[in-house]
Amino acid sequence: MEFALIPGISILMCCHNSRQKLPFSLQHLQALHIPNGMNVELLVVDNASTDDTLSFAREYVQKHPLPFPVHYLQEPQLGLSFARLTGILAARYEFVLFCDDDNGLYPDYLEQALQCLHQLPEHEAIAMIGGQGIAVFETPPPVWARQFHLFGCGPQAQRSGPVRQLYGAGSLLWKKAFLHLHAAGFRWLLTDRQGERLTSGGDFELCAALQICGYRLWYAENLRFAHFLTATRLSLPYYQRFIREASVSENFFLLYHALPHARGHSRWPVRWLALREAGYHVWRLFALLLKTFSMHTRPGSRELRRLRIFYHSSRLHHLMHIKRELHNSWPLLVDWYRNLNNHLPQTSPKQRFV
């Protein structure tokens, strides 16, 4: 199946109760350098907001015009994955740039994206390119917060090149690849961030689905954006809540990793991977507990160990309760995987972008 798309970049900003955060993101969009001849648009998707986010966005853009058209959409079903799906399908251009409502794209972001697209390896079917989030803190952060990366911040690899997963913030998605997935029956199992709930993982699920279908992911270290972190997100209880609510999504990644080994609807490929991962977390917990008796401590090291112990314990807990995901989601994924052979022509996005 072929999809005719217009060369250019659609910036997708999904919002839920974002009145307080939008000025930060929109100010950065005002300062973007637009390469000559590049088609650009902004899609603002209101995801079941209760603070009149969409009206605020319209008023702000009227007072502070952007250098490209802005379109406003609504997605009543709460969940970042639903909002992103609405935006991706509505996007006019060939690439969709995920810009969250607390992200500030650096002025040269589009120029760097264009340069990266022209430099992609000819033989690679690269469907998603990720950049590097630079944390901008509302208040001075504790020492451990700079070392324990959450929230789509920090380098995603040691250098630019192929990677196995990308966080969604700041990522550039080749829409044609997504439409091939969608036509083949792909639907997000994870809702991702849902209102005040800290559930996540929709971006990593998309990465897993793209790779299952033969596409590749690429990290570009020169693609940089600011990620604004409020003071409320810099406490140990908040980090622990995020880990507890978000780490359950990793059960779904096991399902995707098990698909190449699927034999009918048998759950054993997933059970084997879950058992292997559980062994890893037990080993890591043992090593971390040994370090608690070390006499050598650096500032923030105690909190870092506490968070890592909490993460590995949470993963063990969720692995012990993977039966629900196996019962509800595994048959759906296996059926989707069986139907992939009739879809997904692989062509490098570099060859399609002008």
Rank of each mutant, 00 (worst) to 15 (best):
C207R: 02
I212G: 10
L223S: 09
E196V: 02
I212E: 04
Y215R: 11
A208K: 14
G202K: 13
Q211T: 12
G214H: 11
L198H: 00
E205L: 13
T199G: 03
L210Y: 02
Y219R: 08
G195A: 04
C213N: 04
Y215N: 09
L217T: 08
E205C: 15
D192P: 10
Y219M: 14
S200Q: 14
F204V: 15
L206H: 12
A220S: 07
D192H: 02
E196F: 10
E221W: 09
G201W: 08
E221T: 05
Q211A: 06
D203V: 02
F204Y: 13
T199V: 13
L217M: 11
G214R: 07
D192E: 12
L210R: 06
G195M: 03
R193S: 05
G202M: 15
E196Y: 08
R224K: 05
E196Q: 09
L210C: 09
G195D: 03
N222G: 14
L198R: 00
A208Q: 12
E196D: 15
Q211W: 09
R193P: 06
D203L: 04
R197T: 00
C207S: 11
S200E: 10
R216C: 02
L210E: 01
G195C: 08
Q194W: 01
E205Q: 08
I212V: 13
R193E: 03
G201L: 13
D203E: 14
L206N: 04
I212M: 01
C213S: 12
N222W: 01
C213P: 00
L210H: 00
C207L: 08
R197Q: 08
C207D: 14
E196G: 14
R193A: 00
R193D: 01
L206I: 15
W218D: 09
F204M: 11
A209K: 00
E205Y: 12
E221P: 04
Y215T: 10
R224A: 08
F204D: 12
F204E: 05
F204G: 07
C213M: 02
L223G: 08
W218H: 10
G201Y: 13
Y215L: 10
E205H: 09
E205G: 15
L198S: 02
G195S: 02
D192S: 12
E205I: 15
L206W: 11
L217K: 03
T199C: 05
Y219Q: 07
L210M: 07
C213I: 04
